[in-house]
Design a protein around this nucleic acid. Structure first.
Lengths: 142, 142
DNA sequence: TTTAAAAATGCAATTCATTCGCATTTGCAT
DNA sequence: ATGCAAATGCGAATGAATTGCATTTTTAAA
């Protein structure tokens, strides 16, 4: 039994190794944009791995719980989006026109958050920054 | 017919002046914390103004559309929250324990957003920053 | 002050994303 | 091989929000 590769990922975190689970993580890992449960469901179908939609949701829950995946709630989208967790702190730049989501891996908030903790006496656990605008492509079209 | 006070607010923006509308805006104006549609619905009932829940939603939509009210989607709350729009750019500090929401009226992002616009060639329309942590009261309790 | 059109409302039904209960199946340690 | 926990499929249920439609209210104009 080998302990390397994606199989090891699940074993290591106490999840069983199922076909759909592997496929879902694979889709997420390959995906450029964050994806919804529905999108994953459809993509699985195309690949003839057809998992039930509730299985997709349950799997995404587990993956999120195990921090293999990050769940995103982008305002203006009623659905949650999911992305493979590359263990990088990110923010998102969202095009209001085409809905494209671009990750920004720099964070301007380090010192600010520390100062805020001091001022407010909160212990700060995290933050979320989304930036909205119009991408170069969409700007041209108008 | 007087044109001052809260009545003028509605007239000025092309909304009719109804009892529930006035009461809803009043609740929002007085409220320290952002409130959900359901909360407003219940508060109206207590005041014997009992509007239908869908009326509450429709009213909140209109008020949001007219920028009299701001709609908030705080992560971890499935419902939307609404607050009176005092025309101040704000961010929110949310206690993960007691769910208290504190507005922060300073914004550390001015220059950052400008630089980002330059770098990415996006036209930036806005941003959203929520900060999560534990408030002093909840920290003591643990 | 009456009146007609537009806007707002109540109510019930509907939508949509997500969750749940439960019977069945699968993965995996022994 | 086998037993048990975990995972799955399926349909039903949830909860927030929206919609269609008949009725009522507001408001501007006659």
């Amino acid at each position: 039994m080998k302990d390397t590769g994606i199989n090891a990922t699940f074993k290591g975190c106490g999840l069983k190794n199922t076909k759909s689970r592997l496929a879902i993580l694979d889709i997420l890992e390959r995906s450029v944009q964050p994806v919804s449960a529905e999108q994953i469901f459809l993509e699985l179908k195309e690949k003839n791995i057809s998992a039930n939609l509730s299985t997709v949701y349950r799997t995404l829950d587990k993956l999120t719980e195990k921090k293999l995946v990050t769940k995103l709630q982008i305002t203006g989208d009623s659905r949650a989006l999911f992305e493979y967790n590359r263990m990088v702190h990110k923010h998102y730049l969202i095009c209001l026109e085409c809905k494209k989501i671009t990750a920004i891996e720099s964070c301007p908030l380090g010192d600010y958050v520390k100062a805020l903790a001091r001022e407010t006496d909160y212990s700060i656990a995290g933050h979320r920054l989304d930036i909205y605008g119009f991408c170069p492509d969409c700007r041209k079209k108008d």
